[in-house]
Design a protein around this nucleic acid. Structure first.
Length: 380
DNA sequence: GAACCGTGGTG
DNA sequence: TCACCAAGGTT
């Protein structure tokens, strides 16, 4: 059913977009570690499905700049999907630590095992089949199918949404406008070079049709773009406003073994926040008013001393954790393990927990304001 | 649909 | 300081 604010697809500049966009892409495509250049592609070098899959999962809600170093370490350590499948899940989580959205890492491992066990180590070649694999949704299935296997499917990510809402000056707010956007992309996608078309749309969104200050003067599509024609590009996409995230509060307890400075860690539940990742023992993270804090909330008795608090912003709430420290000569009466400094770089510690450890181990003379976690250090 | 799930960069 | 954003998926 066509909504009043939607334009009929017949009004779309469909035939003239793919040509100039691919012409632009052949000259301005970004060089990325998982990408085969347009020239090599034309010369017959296909992209490796394994590298496309891995990069696409890492790139979910994550910037190219952040992904590059993680991608390099992953493919160096696990060169094939079979190698990922054969690795213990804790190793995958350890290599993913700091990248966020840790369900991606668990699903990545599950997906690798499915591809290895049920598909003889070869990724299925259609978006519909890929869509059934763990961690591969609407976007990622289309992206892999188009880029690795030349299937002409609509690939819609945040970049494409921005480009399309500007091209057609779509006034309806996201996420409601997604169906309309998808229909436009499907109509624009060519049967020839669908993978390059998808990557070209995303490159355009990342480098020219940017969220703020779009460089319309450099855009190969500006003559087709309604928003640019009206001088309103930066006004799109329209988004539904979100409520401010609530605050939660809790406490973290860092037990230190004086002999070698090792710290007692445990593994979080596989589901929920930071699922499967490592941490020093923490309380539940409750609403700010009734959060369990103070040394009384500790999982076992010790000479806990307050070391200051750390704050951390998650997608849907902000957290303040009080940090307590105690020296222990005996093993604590709860499940876990000692992790010394040499082992700590390889632990699956999320950024929040690295902030907690930094706070707990900081020199008491240091000011307690610095909220940044130290950059991740790795053993070996 | 909407809530849940991380983190780092940027204005 | 803060709000927004980034190659989204699952429940």
């Amino acid at each position: 059913m066509l909504q009043p604010e939607q334009q009929p697809l017949s009004a779309a500049p469909v035939p003239s977009v793919a040509g100039p966009l691919l012409f632009w892409y052949d000259r301005h495509a970004r060089a990325l570690p998982w990408r085969v250049s347009p020239e090599s592609r034309t010369a017959g070098t296909p992209p490796e499905p394994y590298r496309i899959w891995l990069s696409e999962v890492m790139l979910q809600q994550t910037t190219v700049a952040t992904v590059k170093s993680y991608f390099a370490r992953f493919v160096d350590r696990w060169p094939t999907v079979g190698a990922v499948a054969a690795a213990p899940e804790t190793d995958i989580l350890g290599e993913w630590a700091g990248l966020g959205y840790y369900a991606r890492a668990r699903n990545l491992h599950a997906c690798a095992k499915t591809v290895t066990d049920d598909f003889d180590g070869c990724f299925p070649r259609t978006a519909a089949e890929l869509r059934a694999l763990p961690g591969i949704g609407e976007y990622t299935s289309a992206a892999i199918a188009a880029i690795a296997f030349d299937e002409p499917v609509a690939v819609v990510d945040g970049n494409v949404e921005r480009v399309v809402t500007r091209l057609f000056a779509i006034e309806a707010p996201l996420p409601g406008a997604r169906k309309t956007i998808r229909a436009h992309v499907a109509a624009l996608t060519p049967d020839s070079r669908p993978g390059d078309f998808a990557q070209a749309m995303m490159d355009l969104g990342a480098t020219v049709c940017t969220p703020t200050g779009p460089a319309c003067i450099l855009c190969p599509l500006r003559v087709h773009c309604r928003a640019a024609t009206q001088g309103r590009a930066a006004q799109f996409p329209v988004k539904k406003p979100k409520a401010a995230p609530p605050e939660r509060k809790g406490a973290a307890f860092v037990a230190v073994r004086p002999a070698d400075g090792a710290i007692w860690l445990r593994r979080r539940a596989r589901s929920g926040m930071l699922g499967g990742m490592s941490e020093p023992p923490t309380t539940e993270w409750s609403a700010r008013a009734d959060g369990a804090t103070g040394a009384e909330a500790a999982p076992f008795a010790a000479n806990w001393r307050y070391q200051g608090a750390v704050t951390h912003g998650f997608t849907h709430f902000r957290l303040e954790l009080e940090v307590y420290r105690a020296e222990l000569t005996q093993e604590p009466p709860i499940a876990g393990w000692w992790s010394n400094e040499a082992a700590r770089g390889g632990e699956a510690l999320p950024t929040l927990m690295r902030k907690v450890l930094d706070r707990a181990l900081a020199d008491p003379a240091e000011p307690r304001q610095s909220p940044k976690a130290q950059p991740r250090k790795r053993a070996g």
